[in-house]
Design a protein around this nucleic acid. Sequence first.
RNA 1: GCCCGGGUGGCGAAACCGGUAGACGCAAGGGACUUAAAAUCCCUCGGGGAAACCUGUGCGGGUUCGAGUCCCGCCCCGGGCACCA
Length: 877
Amino acid sequence: MAIEEQFQPARIESEAQRHWEESGTFRVSEDPAREKFYCLSMFPYPSGRLHMGHVRNYTIGDVIARYQRMTGKNVLQPMGWDAFGLPAENAAMNNGVPPAAWTYDNIDYMRGQLKSLGFAVDWSREVATCKPDYYRWNQWFFLRLLEKGIVYQKTGTVNWDPVDQTVLANEQVIDGRGWRTGALVEKREIPMYYMAITKYAEELLADLDHLPGWPEQVRTMQKNWIGKSHGVRVGFPYRLPSPSGRGAGGESGLASDGGTLWVFTTRADTLMGATYVAVAAEHPLALHAAQSNPELAAFIEECKRGGTSEAEIATQEKKGMPTGLTVTHPLTGEALPLWVANYVLMGYGEGAVMAVPAHDERDFEFAHKYGLPINAVIKTSAGSETPAPWQDAYAEHGTCINSGKYDGLGFDAAVDAIAADLSTKGLGEKQVTWRLRDWGISRQRYWGTPIPIIHCDACGDVPVPDDQLPVVLPEECVPDGAGNPLNRYEAFLHTTCPKCGGAARRETDTMDTFVDSSWYFFRYTSPDAGTMVDARADYWMPVDQYVGGIEHAILHLLYSRFWTKVMRDLGLTRVSEPFTNLLTQGMVVAPTFYREGDDGRKQWINPAEVTVQTDDKGRPLSATLATDGQPVVMGGIEKMSKSKNNGVDPQALIERYGADTARVFMMFAAPPEQSLEWSDSGVEGAYRFLKRLWSFAAEHQQAIAAAGEGGELGKADTALRREIHEALKQARADFGRYQFNTVVSACMKIQNALGRIGGGTAADGLRKEGLGILLRLLSPIAPHLTHHLWCELGYGDDVLDAPWPQVDESALARDTIEMVVQVNGKVRGKVKVPADADKPAIEAAALADTNVQRFVGGQTVVKIIVVPGRLVNIVVK
RNA sequence: GCCCGGGUGGCGAAACCGGUAGACGCAAGGGACUUAAAAUCCCUCGGGGAAACCUGUGCGGGUUCGAGUCCCGCCCCGGGCACCA
């Protein structure tokens, strides 16, 4: 059958997809005889429609999967849905649709979109985390961890909206106010379940050095996040004044007469310079002091205002207030004032810090603001005093001064000596601390995995027995923004105590959705197992290539690493690290536009509705809304997101040009790890490229039919054959390092070379070879078109099973090469020399060049540098 | 604020180990074909200059025969910051 004249992507794409589906091409099973390759892309949240970031992510993953398959591996590429989460609850509030129904609809629509892009996915392994047969293993695993003491309860801080009487996510707190009510948000302490990720901190840190397949950048970020620091725990004894009336301590749980306030410091060498000590607003000592100090109590209330995020706390104005209490310096016995400061975090370290204003920038500012003493105790490169303004050098390690017996000691010696003296007094010792905090997994939300705990008045908190799992989440609730609907859902709430059989209440908190995504890659290997995983996981795990957004560099990847190690310790897997190689895909970004409403809130406007005015150089000057012509504010270029309304819908692109064009454009526009700014231009170029390939194939088919094949290559064609094999060599290397933009570029070069081949039967032979190379190289990127042409041109049954093209080294051989000649580093000429010319011959040829002579003439040649195959640099004086 | 990246023509980018900066595309301009348009094909295309040549990889220094690439100091943009996923 002849290749049609018109390139009709819609038809050939659905044909190819039907072929793959009917042949079960991408359905895989364990085969110990073959080398496996587990290629995984981060599963999508079913938000409604695919966005450009998804298309990019899954195209990158698919190109890798198809490439690995063509090089002979048994490739597993699964797909699923990260289906629990906040957006479903928001949609419910807006539309009155239950999160479950909304989510399942979205999954159905997005699955269709994914299939239309032709991804080589084994759909028989599809997983959705909101289904009981998935999340029951979250619950089962939670219970195992509870038994092992890795899950435990303590209080945690949340954002509380006092109007809606509900807990808010950080995203729902805008400038310290609830996003729906506009009410000032407060911090509130509530009981939560935690996973003790800090028990694995040492291993999580150490194993980063054994992940050579991860980007250095991600390993560094995780290292800093885990944040191992060596320091000293220092005790500051205090006495509480005995108050008249109510009992001291009392509510705050303090001993009535006094105790020791512990702080952690990485700068014990500066202890002699400590001039005050500060505690967090929630610290028991602060609360105690506030009992008799209304002003302080008001300040502590004020500190509760605002969100809980670290960014917000770190950028807020530093404020403090004295408690009126003092603590005793453990070495000098001096009384130091005890302050409450809003920059001290209860959740980090001891919730208290010693302040050395002379050598810490934050303490320096605070001391200046409140007139606290500043005592320099380290000689730094900035000298032995610390006059304002702050200089970074003040924080350097140096030699102790003004520190009594410690004078003259360097950092390490001073820390050792001070730690030893503290230890003798029972007021300190060396300690390792971590920035990493335990993972709070309780969420006061409906659309998540129910925490399998039952509250019984008689027996306390009782774990749900395994044979009662899963605790099924009712799917018909519609959240309204005022708390968790499970708290009002009687049929879920009421149960019997597994221990005593009496009436009891179910826990209504659900699990953080990071729980769901911490092990889904295990479930893909054994999606129908009656256990969490089965032996099939041993064949497929670890994931050979993980592909996903750089924005997940810390949390998701760290939780998954932790989870895998815990699974290993429970005997569920043999692997210690889930992802051997990691490709952090750059974000798809787009300009943002907004207008400010009367209430000062930003209303984000989609770029598609905006007209941008540019200067004569094409730089944007201003923007207006297309519908009313009035100006909008340009908000900068950011990650495509719902919240900034700057997404571009890929659906129109796919419908108009087809999946292959979308895929080629995505791969060609930027290397995978770089961020990609979306623009409509360039898509046309990708489409033209595919159309040209199509026409070329059709003409080639006619030529063969007319004249037959065979014949010797002509002389003129050896140069073109070399071009083709050089491009092939480049493409093979670039496939190997996953730099797909230059793979596409190499394919375009091959196509350009093919187009320059002359007529005749000999030329047909070269065309056949070149086209065969091009179709195979392009097939991971444009699988539909290449599948169709490969069959039509009679190369074989399925391009996926064709051998990966090899470079013919003899085609690359050259008799002469051209070398650049520089004089003092500037290009002054080019010379052709025999490929096997030796150094003296090359030098002579370079010096003989007339233009080179002009620049060398009359000067002394100091030396000549020859870079074989590239250039000659003649250094003259 | 803290941690991690990035910055190269009008635009997306390439240059893999320090060796011809701008491959491959997009846009633009000119031309061919066409009654015309679209599509397609050909040519030009960092800036200055008639040319020789000079200049140019965010800015300022440095190392080197030679720097987009390495070092030091800045500026700007983006990602993450533990309840968005």
